[in-house]
């Protein structure tokens, strides 16, 4: 297999979103460097705004759609497919794209965007996620310089990367395999992770913390019991629960995990032989040192 087998889109309008500029900076850094290495150019979406997450449309449907639709319109203006790393930004942008193609919704959303000073009529770009592009558009097998032999990983997809399928559609909503396959290409050993599509309770983390912690604990428990060295994911909100709240969960339940959480782009970057610090791996709250030791 050669890299030229499938000719991918080589330039994207890249939408980082709020999280990738703050708590998930390493996801931003690693996305940029890995895509650059693979010859895919990312032009940051100019003047992007928050997609509204899972919350905006539950306060006002139109507000939620316009918030997410704005970024799609801006990408359309740049005439480039929109690429998001964050599962949430990706999902909500794709949802807005679908609404903008729906005649019964389009006018209402476009009227709000027009008030924002954005007038775009025709929508023909695509909304993609970085995992989708990495598994379906490029073949980086030949670029693996440091196979992650011996590393046991649990791939966690969560919700918004693959559900609902009429919005996502490139991987199974029940038994997704894209990140498993990417990790295997990297040389890692993938464990059979039953919680891979469970919900971590992200949107209710603040308002119903106990419920969210219970959900997150189940995911961490299974990964630990399978002997995984880390959890691989592509969602900053899942990371907030699994990594940033890991010590709170340890305290609350009297357990100990110390389980590294790593973004899929970081894992690929490591296997491609990119220096850990260049991928932002030093920015994790739960240290990735044990993992780095193992693949040395």
């Amino acid at each position: 297999m050669t890299e030229t087998m499938i000719k991918p889109t080589t330039k994207y309008s890249y939408y980082p979103g709020c999280s990738l500029h703050t708590t998930a900076k390493e996801f931003d850094i690693s996305t940029r460097i890995v895509m650059k290495e693979l010859g895919i150019e990312l032009e940051e979406l100019q003047d992007w705004s928050c997609c509204g997450g899972s919350i905006a449309a539950s306060v006002s449907h139109d507000v939620g759609m316009a918030m997410a639709g704005r970024n799609v319109a801006l990408a359309q203006k740049q005439n480039l497919d929109l690429l998001a790393s964050c599962s949430g930004c990706y999902n909500k942008s794709a949802r807005a794209m679908k609404a903008l193609k729906n005649p019964s919704e389009k006018d209402k959303i476009m009227a709000i965007m027009s008030d924002m000073g954005i007038d775009v009529d025709d929508y023909n770009i695509r909304v993609r996620n970085v995992v989708d592009v990495l598994i379906n558009d490029v073949d980086f097998t030949s670029r693996i310089k440091k196979p992650l032999t011996g590393l046991k990983v649990a791939c966690y997809y969560g919700c918004l990367l693959t559900r609902p399928a009429d919005i996502t559609g490139w991987d199974s909503p029940r038994f997704p395999t894209s990140m498993d396959r990417l990790s295997e290409i990297c040389g890692a050993q993938v464990v059979d992770f039953k919680s891979k599509t469970s919900c971590c309770g992200g949107p209710i983390l603040v308002s119903k913390q106990d419920v969210a912690f219970d959900l997150t604990k189940k995911i961490l428990d299974e990964a630990q019991s399978l002997g995984a060295d880390c959890i691989v994911l592509a969602c900053p909100l899942c990371d907030t629960n699994l990594e940033l709240r890991q010590s709170d969960i340890e305290k609350k339940y009297g357990v100990s995990y110390n389980l590294p959480i790593i973004y899929i782009t970081e894992l690929i970057g490591l296997a491609m032989g990119i220096k850990p610090n260049k991928l932002g791996i030093n920015k994790h709250i739960v240290s990735l040192k044990p993992l780095l030791e193992k693949i040395k």
């Binding site: 992007w48 705004s49 306060v59 139109d62 507000v63 316009a66 008030d115 924002m116 000073g117």
Partner: peptide, 21 residues
């Protein structure tokens, strides 16, 4: 961080929220 024209953004969404209501 802010977008370039937050006032216009805010006003448009406030109007949308009102209409939605």
């Amino acid at each position: 961080e802010t977008i370039k024209n937050p006032q216009q953004f805010n006003q448009a969404l406030q109007k949308a929220k009102k209409n939605d209501g």
